[in-house]
């Protein structure tokens, strides 16, 4: 208990805690429609774009988010529209974009001298890097996502289940898709510095996929996924603090164990 109090006596821990909590929640919520629509790997692609953008921004001495957010939003919109067709092109293009931006990022970093620490930070994340600005940004993002999921629940459901049908029956289906793209992009950019470019997509994948093993309704899936995501974050945070492990990796480890448990429950349920 005293260790927990000690943990929160550092202001950077409190900031990391708030941002991480909200990002985990957002990523888990977005995860359900993304995984169901077979867009799982978009998170991974976007985190690589985000890595490239931040490296360039750092090299140019710009504020990292000012470049990363617009670039990643752009990439997100392009990728979501490409994979709509489910063609080979969309799939391959995702790989091109993500490896390409990674290469640009790594090159930018190696051309700028004396930045070795930042590379590891961007690759594997650091809970220490959250600023007061990140806290505000994540609060706005969290509010936006929760509100969207409540107000547009049926629209999100309809577009996730059958985009073709949703398009034909009218309504601003394109707007929902754009909304999904923009929110995913901001979540990735914000979460990337905590989880790292290599691990951020796990926050989107694991909770939704674990929940899917057990729950058979869309709303159950969304709620369970949110709870799983947040719980994994909390436990991962504690694990990382007590055993001096990297935060991102600890959260993924907890998520992995949740997945195994849910997978087993799901198998028993269906057996």
């Amino acid at each position: 208990m005293t260790l927990l109090t000690e943990m929160f006596s550092y202001s950077f821990m409190v900031r990391g805690f708030i941002v991480g909590f909200i990002i985990s929640l957002c990523a888990a919520l977005l995860g359900s429609p993304l995984v169901l629509k077979r867009y799982s790997m978009i998170g991974d692609g976007l985190s690589h774009v985000s890595f490239g953008a931040m490296a360039i921004a750092t090299a140019l001495n710009w504020a990292p988010l000012s470049l990363a957010i617009p670039l990643v939003i752009l990439a997100s919109v392009i990728l979501l529209n490409l994979s709509e067709k489910g063609t080979l092109r969309g799939d391959a293009f995702l790989g091109l974009i993500s490896t390409g931006s990674m290469a640009v990022g790594v090159s930018a970093i190696s051309l700028t001298k004396g930045m070795n620490i930042d590379v590891t930070n961007y690759m594997f994340g650091s809970i220490l890097s959250m600023t007061q600005g990140d806290v505000y940004l994540s609060l706005v993002l969290g509010a936006l996502i929760i509100l969207s999921f409540i107000l547009f629940y049926h629209e999100i459901f309809a577009v996730t289940f059958d985009e073709t049908f949703a398009r034909v029956s009218g309504g601003p289906y394109k707007a929902y898709k754009m909304l999904l793209a923009v929110l995913t992009a901001i979540t990735i950019v914000l979460g990337m510095r905590m989880m790292g470019a290599m691990l951020i997509s796990s926050l989107i994948l694991f909770p939704a996929f674990s929940a899917m093993q057990v729950f058979g309704r869309f709303y159950q899936l969304i709620i369970a996924s949110a709870i799983l995501g947040v719980t994994a974050f909390l436990l991962g945070m504690v694990l990382s603090y007590f055993y001096a492990l990297p935060t991102g990796a600890s959260i993924v480890l907890i998520n992995m164990s949740f997945f195994i448990i849910f997978y087993l429950i799901g198998r028993r349920k269906n057996a």
Partner: peptide
């Protein structure tokens, strides 16, 4: 919604987590 469309089914819809009611409802004019 002057027309009801029944597209070809996607493979991934077959195991979509939803009830029959929920899916039918998406046809309702919104």
């Amino acid at each position: 919604n002057g027309l009801g469309y029944m597209p070809q089914q996607h493979v991934f819809q077959k195991d979509f987590p939803a009830s029959v009611e929920e899916i039918a409802r998406t046809g309702l004019p919104r």
